[in-house]
């Protein structure tokens, strides 16, 4: 109980800190909305077809959540580790789990905020359509598929200094976005690229959310892949976290 209350407190003040530098927020909020506006809305072939338009909106939502998870975890953890405020917070009567939950709350809220403009633009300017239950189930699957990206962010944050983290996060983010079919639909991929793409968590996340919103068949590689990524990145994150505890104190 205390853990949840304190996680809320830490999340609140971390949000206040984030919103005091609004340009940082705008960056992660505006980019997915702009992507939809420039790449999808003008292409009426896609925008006027309900099925394609919905998939495009979903792709951009996955991108928004992925970018937010990678950036927020990777860079905030790397930065916090460099600040002497962090060891001070660890002298307070607050369990470590509360601080991890606080990261998840505050970053999760940012993720929700980031997909609102995508859904609004998609709803108003394209033929995208979905039932209320489809949207809600889609949001749940979006949250689940955010886990590997959050964990990758944690791994980046604990394994390198913040300047390196920014560079690595950007490469990972754009690489995952293209390879996962978030910018160009996999329909346009060459067969070899389509096969390769199925190994990326971004592609798996896209398929999972599309299945949740539009229904149809879910290929086993999508959910098996997501589970495998969660397991792998969780193990790596725990190893790096432990190693960091040892190294930071030298």
């Amino acid at each position: 109980m205390t853990t949840f209350r304190l996680a809320g407190v830490h999340a609140k003040y971390s949000m206040i800190e984030t919103f005091r530098v609004p340009i940082a927020v705008i960056g992660s909020l505006v980019f997915p909305a702009l992507g939809l506006l420039f790449f999808v809305v003008p292409q009426r072939v896609v925008a006027d077809d309900p099925a394609f338009a919905t998939q495009a909106v979903i792709s951009m939502s996955v991108f928004a959540v992925m970018a937010n998870s990678l950036f927020s975890f990777g860079i905030s953890i790397a930065e916090d580790r460099e600040k002497p405020w962090d060891p001070y917070l660890r002298t307070l009567p607050v369990p470590g789990m509360a601080r991890v939950l606080a990261y998840i709350f505050s970053i999760g809220l940012m993720g929700v905020i980031a997909i609102i403009p995508v859904i609004v633009i998609g709803g108003l300017l394209t033929a995208a359509e979905a039932s209320i239950s489809g949207i809600l189930f889609g949001l749940v699957m979006l949250a689940v598929s955010a886990l590997p990206f959050m964990l990758i962010g944690i791994c980046v944050g604990y394994s390198m200094p913040s300047k390196a983290a920014i560079a690595v996060v950007q490469v990972v983010m754009f690489g995952f976005a293209f390879a996962g079919g978030l910018f160009l639909p996999p329909l346009l991929f060459a067969p070899w690229l389509d096969t390769l793409s199925k190994f990326f968590p971004s592609r798996q996340a896209r398929e999972l959310v599309i299945w949740a919103v539009q229904g149809g068949d879910l290929e086993p590689w999508a959910w098996l892949g997501i589970l495998a990524w969660i397991a792998m990145t969780l193990v790596l994150a725990l190893v790096l976290f432990r190693r960091d505890e040892g190294r930071r104190y030298r």
């Binding site: 003040y13 800190e17 002497p84 405020w85």
Partner: peptide
């Protein structure tokens, strides 16, 4: 440490 205080709070 006094340099540690979160600057924007």
């Amino acid at each position: 440490q006094e340099t540690a205080l979160p600057a924007t709070l």
